[in-house]
Amino acid sequence: MIGATAPFMVSKSNHVAKAFPMTTEHPVLSTHGVSIRFGGHIAVNNVSCEFRPGILTAIVGPNGAGKTTYFNLMSGQLSPTSGTVRLYGEDVTRLGAPQRTKRGIGRAFQLTNLFPNLTVLENVRLTVQSRAGLGLNMISMWASHVELIEKAEHFLHVTALGESRHELASALSHGDKRKLEIAILLALEPDIFMFDEPTAGMSVDEVPVVLDLIHHIKAQGDKTILLVEHKMDVVRSLADRIVVLHNGYLVADGDPAEVMASPIVQEAYLGTGMAEHV
């Protein structure tokens, strides 16, 4: 069943979007005036934005701009203080992360977030199992679900982790942990991919593996991809659109070339010592 051309399985209409028109005109994910306050600090302030299928949106901004917090608000790890999050037109603001994952959001984390004392294969298999809805099965043997193992092995192969499948996740190098993070995201087979600095801390020769994967997802044409990234060369090579956050505000949104050239972006980056990346 594994596709000969695509490096990983392509599944159409995976989740709840059957009745939803999958065209670039309709946003699959949108936020409407979302804000979140931590004590006196407003980390994300009244951000409204829409994300459409087939488009890779890079979310950029200096450290502390609220990019990861904004991701957390969309993927359900945090609930906004005000504003709404819509997924396929449905208000999901009050739904937790598991429900949003079931509805098609897939998230890879900035700080590696794995199951350290489970093997690499088990990490990915748990993801495949969640997707197959087998989590509550307590009668069958874990080892007897060959189809899940094969599928998990496939995602490990795609991310070049096949060799370390029986190692504990905690024993992996930093770069491999990042790759495992991406293998887990792929195994979720989401409609909306959220990458939070996927290449951070990776060695130079490992970065292309990840970028190729993102290129392949993009090439499918119907996936919505959100990417938080500091490396501007990566952003330039991948992004169809750039959204700039600064101090929790959305300060620019549009075509990469225009956004990069805009004075507000220049100022935001130059002001925090990020000029060398621009």
Partner: peptide, 22 residues
């Protein structure tokens, strides 16, 4: 040793991540 049992271990290891997996 069932699929359910592995989810329990996943929760023990990292409940935040288990939630993110659905």
């Amino acid at each position: 040793n069932s699929p359910f049992g592995r989810v329990l271990q996943a929760i023990r290891e990292n409940d935040f991540r288990a939630e993110a997996l659905g």
